[in-house]
Design a protein around this nucleic acid. Sequence first.
DNA 1: TTGAAAGCGCTAACAG
DNA 2: CTGTTAGCGCTTTCAA
Lengths: 345, 345
Amino acid sequence: MEPSAPSRRVTIVDVARHAQVSTTAVSKVLRNAYGASPEMRAKVRRAIDELGYRPHAGARGLRGQTYTIGVMLPDIRNPFFPEILDGITGSLEDTEYQVFLGPGGNGEKAEARVTEAMIDRRMDGIIMIAPVSPRTHLEQVASSVPTVVVGRHGSSPVYDTVVDDDVEGASLIVDHLAGLGHRRIAHIEHRETDPTRRAEMPNARRADGYRQAMRALGLAESIDVVSTSYTQEGGYKGAKELLARPRLPTAVFAGADIVAMGVLEAVAEAGLSVPGDISVAGYDNTTFAALGPISLTSVDQAGHEIGRNAARLLLERIADRRRPSVQVRLSPTLVPRRTTARPPE
Amino acid sequence: MEPSAPSRRVTIVDVARHAQVSTTAVSKVLRNAYGASPEMRAKVRRAIDELGYRPHAGARGLRGQTYTIGVMLPDIRNPFFPEILDGITGSLEDTEYQVFLGPGGNGEKAEARVTEAMIDRRMDGIIMIAPVSPRTHLEQVASSVPTVVVGRHGSSPVYDTVVDDDVEGASLIVDHLAGLGHRRIAHIEHRETDPTRRAEMPNARRADGYRQAMRALGLAESIDVVSTSYTQEGGYKGAKELLARPRLPTAVFAGADIVAMGVLEAVAEAGLSVPGDISVAGYDNTTFAALGPISLTSVDQAGHEIGRNAARLLLERIADRRRPSVQVRLSPTLVPRRTTARPPE
DNA sequence: TTGAAAGCGCTAACAG
DNA sequence: CTGTTAGCGCTTTCAA
């Protein structure tokens, strides 16, 4: 076997010649386009199989579509994304479209690089998962290619959105804890200063949902929010701060599972037990939340459903670029586990 | 802002006109190719900036390169991949190349689909991470595009490889446990029947490494391997089996962290404590192994280094497709944590 | 050093 | 229903 032999690939011309038809005919068969008799289709398909022909996506893209969907993933480490991704690829695997993930890694700049790269490659559509870029950038992307934005609140006329209701998710947790008898329920949020992001980012909505739910339960005076970041360290620091309060909270609602991990660590260090002395809840129902030694009460976003909807909306928008934008909102569910229980007497 | 307005993009012709030069000149500047005076370069670059021109990757690919690198990822859930990915993207971010991930999901078929899609898009190179496909498929891919295979033992003349030494990693664990005083050290492996895969897949090498290390320590008669799968459930079942032995092992080396999670669960169910009654070790040093409540002893593969090497080899091979293939082998390190300790008296 | 012209592989527009 | 023709946006000859 030759190392990467640049042997000429089979082209549409080869197929046409082999099948004794025009390239146009082959093209029509490839695209299932109108204007080819059944016999011709059969003949062409046979030639394609016999020659092992595969169309060159780049060349197709020069005139038509590239049959490529780009998914921008800000943080591949986030254990919540695989579910969404499965939903997307599952919906697309019976289509001609192929999904490629662009690692959006490090903030706005990396996101911009990836989206530009997707546009440079004329991808037919883009799904942006929990982007942190300013809205103007999202709209700029959306104005040049069909786009669906996932995990970001607020709507735009130029892109469709799919979100899970973070306000509802937060109240699921608060209600659950209050139902167990807790009153001093604290929350650890991700610090957010930018006003647009305060309105659009899931973390901010969760904090709002917490406040709303507390008020609805008549626990307004117990509202206690610590601002750190959605990291294990953020959870650790936030919990340290809470554990220094004159009156300890009996429950901590961490805005994300990873934050809850830091909380568990700090609580253990303080010699307190979970859930005996203090209940802890997270958000996202990540893989490790379910692990035996952790067993963290959390909120499950219907990741698979989110992905399915995103894919569906994108296909619809590719088919009709000027239809009005759509917003899909899904509801989360509570997953109670062993880190939450009745407060100490 | 128009919803996805198909407004004509700036092309190389626009740039050429704006700069008052030929398209050939612009092309040369784009590719840093030989044959353009400094003044011309400056003029062209200015035009590019002024017009906000970005080359169409697909069109470039029709004659030259696509400046796209594909990374096939079999299982996006595996917490070990992000490190490798960071290594790859880090090495490539100062180049013209853009990385896209292909979700290889469900076994050979999905892997084939993704690699074909990458080839259809004329990606300039492919990195396959821990592929499960038969070697013939890997070689077929490699024969049509520069390829680096990561996390798979055995070499091929047509592709380069980067692996972490799994035999060494296994012996790190066994030596660690033996050093603590353990003699009855059992191992849970991933069942592998295919002979090529037994030789090439990391899981099989780990099992071999375990046996080798046990023999080297004179513990040959204590060798005890249970074959299940690299899943939490596999770990659970494997541990159940081990806990039914007439003489219990004092330590269990699980072939992967996720397997160790299942082991911890089974051990807890049996009313035994870790590491008091039984020590447990994993492999991969995944994110959750470090979490406080888990604190699992594990083996860290130098993921970042693996990624860096893979990217470097790929660029070298893209530059010279007929150079002899290269194999890089890196060494893992032990990360002792709280799940391993001296055996009970 | 520069640019004109051909062509990469495909699809769209059109004519038969 | 079928085929011919003209590009898509770029790189690569090859001549000037």
